[in-house]
Amino acid sequence: MTEFKKDVILTGIPRGGTTLSAALFDNLENAVCLSEPNWQSNWFNRIKDANTVTEYVVNDYQRVRSLIMENKPIKDRRNKNGSPITNYFSDKRNGRRVRLLKQGEFTFQVENENFLLGMKHNEHYTSILPQLIATDAFSIIAIVRHPIPTILSWKSLNLGVSNGRLPFAEPFWKELQEITRTRDKSILTLVKIYDLFCERYLSFSNDIHLLKYEEIINNPNVFEELTGLSFKNNVELSNRNQSKNYNFALADQIKNAISNHAPNALKLYQLDEF
């Protein structure tokens, strides 16, 4: 990989720490990171050709850059004061967790036209990762997290992946389609989905920056080291791998499925690390 580019793709395993990573990236001097822009989701829903949707993404970075430089509002998921959020979902209330924030309109202050612009999507960008790499337009960061807390997080929520589906990614990712077409919500299906993400990131490890959530928690300065920029504010993080929202009774079942069906996950993580 060459020097860090101004346009940055931030992706990773769903519930793997990408929202937190986007917030850290946004906290860098002269940097902005948008969190799952809805208008791009519309493209992934409507367009079924990977090269076409990739071209849309490339052009969108230039469009958003212009809007930021012109001090025009952009829709994003943020706190009312404009600070980035680190988690989309609340703790359990009445037995369920709810999404915290809808998108609002915000303007962004940057130092100059050479600011870093990041955008974060998980399944979307990962599904077209080969095409994004081929453009040579981006630096790409992918975030992974230990499989047991990741899958426990999926099971604690009612997301597409919780139900064995990733609809925005399936049209562009044949191997994913083969797993999700059964509409199976079992632990084994979720483990296979997790492992497929790991396989994709490992296969392109020479072209992306692959970071572990646990390493980010221990050393958030990895984003300063990666980009050469300093944080605007002090950062204090806590590890959510032992969240009270998770059903840890499922941990052994997940561990057994990983041992038998997730060889790529085992290249990244040892099960006794959890």
Results as ranks from 00 to 15, higher is better:
residue 206 N to V: 10
residue 173 W to R: 00
residue 204 F to Q: 14
residue 195 D to T: 01
residue 172 F to M: 08
residue 182 T to W: 14
residue 223 F to E: 01
residue 183 R to A: 14
residue 178 E to F: 01
residue 220 P to H: 10
residue 206 N to Q: 13
residue 214 E to S: 08
residue 212 K to S: 13
residue 174 K to R: 14
residue 224 E to L: 09
residue 217 I to Q: 07
residue 209 H to T: 08
residue 206 N to E: 15
residue 188 L to D: 09
residue 186 S to G: 03
residue 207 D to F: 13
residue 197 F to E: 06
residue 218 N to F: 14
residue 176 L to N: 05
residue 207 D to R: 13
residue 168 F to N: 09
residue 201 Y to F: 15
residue 176 L to Q: 09
residue 197 F to S: 03
residue 203 S to F: 06
residue 181 R to L: 11
residue 185 K to Q: 08
residue 222 V to Y: 00
residue 193 I to V: 07
residue 170 E to T: 12
residue 210 L to G: 02
residue 218 N to M: 12
residue 192 K to E: 03
residue 176 L to M: 13
residue 198 C to P: 03
residue 175 E to C: 02
residue 178 E to W: 13
residue 205 S to C: 14
residue 183 R to P: 05
residue 224 E to S: 14
residue 188 L to G: 07
residue 218 N to E: 15
residue 220 P to D: 02
residue 198 C to K: 08
residue 175 E to F: 09
residue 206 N to L: 10
residue 209 H to D: 00
residue 217 I to R: 12
residue 214 E to I: 02
residue 168 F to L: 15
residue 190 L to V: 07
residue 183 R to I: 05
residue 187 I to P: 00
residue 190 L to D: 06
residue 170 E to K: 12
residue 189 T to Q: 00
residue 174 K to W: 01
residue 191 V to L: 00
residue 187 I to E: 00
residue 204 F to Y: 15
residue 174 K to E: 08
residue 176 L to E: 03
residue 195 D to G: 02
residue 220 P to W: 10
residue 190 L to F: 04
residue 198 C to T: 07
residue 187 I to T: 07
residue 208 I to M: 07
residue 207 D to I: 04
residue 223 F to N: 05
residue 179 I to W: 01
residue 194 Y to A: 05
residue 191 V to D: 01
residue 180 T to K: 13
residue 190 L to A: 12
residue 209 H to L: 03
residue 215 E to Q: 14
residue 205 S to E: 14
residue 170 E to C: 00
residue 221 N to Q: 15
